[in-house]
Design a binder for these strands. Sequence first.
DNA 1: CCGTGTGAAGAGGTTCACAGCG
DNA 2: CGCTGTGAACCTCTTCACACGG
Lengths: 235, 235
Amino acid sequence: MEKNVTALEPSAEAVPGDKDSASKQIPPAAVARMTLYLRALNSLLAEGVERVSSDALAEASGVSSSTLRKDLSYVGSYGTRGVGYEVQYLSRHIAAALGLTHDWKVAIVGAGNLGKALARYGGFESRGFDVVAILDADPMVIGNEVGWLRVSDAANLELVLQRTGTNMVVLALPAAVAQDVCDRVINAGIRSILSFAPVLLQVPPHVNLRKVDMATELQILAYHAQRAQTPGQAL
Amino acid sequence: MEKNVTALEPSAEAVPGDKDSASKQIPPAAVARMTLYLRALNSLLAEGVERVSSDALAEASGVSSSTLRKDLSYVGSYGTRGVGYEVQYLSRHIAAALGLTHDWKVAIVGAGNLGKALARYGGFESRGFDVVAILDADPMVIGNEVGWLRVSDAANLELVLQRTGTNMVVLALPAAVAQDVCDRVINAGIRSILSFAPVLLQVPPHVNLRKVDMATELQILAYHAQRAQTPGQAL
DNA sequence: CCGTGTGAAGAGGTTCACAGCG
DNA sequence: CGCTGTGAACCTCTTCACACGG
């Protein structure tokens, strides 16, 4: 799902001799899986496990061990042959490769049911993301408390983003206004956006947009369910 | 994004001579995009547009026109050469290919912030999904009104799923209990599950599981943002 | 003549199998 | 001897270019 609207500029890597550069390109599919490894590693860390083999980590992440080893090879050789990986060491290096060495400041635009749910969702802080603001345009909602925050007026969007030092924005608003707000967010200098609005958002190439749409996910499930239900209809 | 944990059994299509079958396999990536086409077509339909070219529809869906035409070729030839596609006709056929000819009954397990947000989200009904139940285990929450529904006791999970005729389940609950509930849902006969829990769920091969995780999405954004910020550090 | 539909080429991702190191 | 790291084969998806039909 998803995982699709990744803006890659092929022309950006025109320099041929950056083979030795520490930051090679990591395939998008591998980046997505890295988050799974990180999650599994942090679970192991919480359990006090110190070392793990590629087989074990792969199973805990739900991928094949060859995929895991290939993915890890993109960021470097952090294992010990014949032994495995040191959990904390590997966790640190994957986090670094993903850019999670410092916290990211996230603002949520839209304080409807979904926006509030996201703002109160505890899973962000523990993974390097600080929700620093939540905004809405509805006067009935502005000023309400949501978790530790108070809903700001979306009219002051640019000001709030600047004051809070926001560098990522989550759009949790109706389709009709999503593109307008998205444009303002981009004009305010934000280049990473996660949208829950069920519309196609137009963004310039330097902006990174990811989309999550529950209706889309259900439709994909419906396709597979329908296939399973009518296997021999054509025969 | 996502869009990844699709259970495909390669052994299931051992029959070689089903070339003429009306329901050929559609590539997973194409299925995901079909939902975009459907959304764009329904927008056009609402605007009263009757015909559309592959170029126009592709732009409205955010894909290339060659991708669009290739995708449509998986479900059949519904266009007119030199003219384009009839909007309603194509919309119907894509919906049929995705199994959206009848409504699907969805139950939401977990009536926390996210579960409530999903239950009240209007985007489901309009796209062929009926939310028929919402459940929780917390006595403080059971019986509360959420949209048109009342929160059922998760202790009666199996009974509620059966009575409502549910055929899809959305898991909106904490990681700690997700696997337990997931197992019960599967035992109750559900084979399509959409999980928002940030854990790896173990499911048998005949069950279709899709996952959505906001933290994962933000981490992927972080990776790209970090790359953009430190372009020449290695040079 | 125009836009669809499609084989063929190309790119990207996954799996395999084993070399290499501890 | 065991497990990691990786080139190579394999497979899927995307893009290209043009034949085909209205």
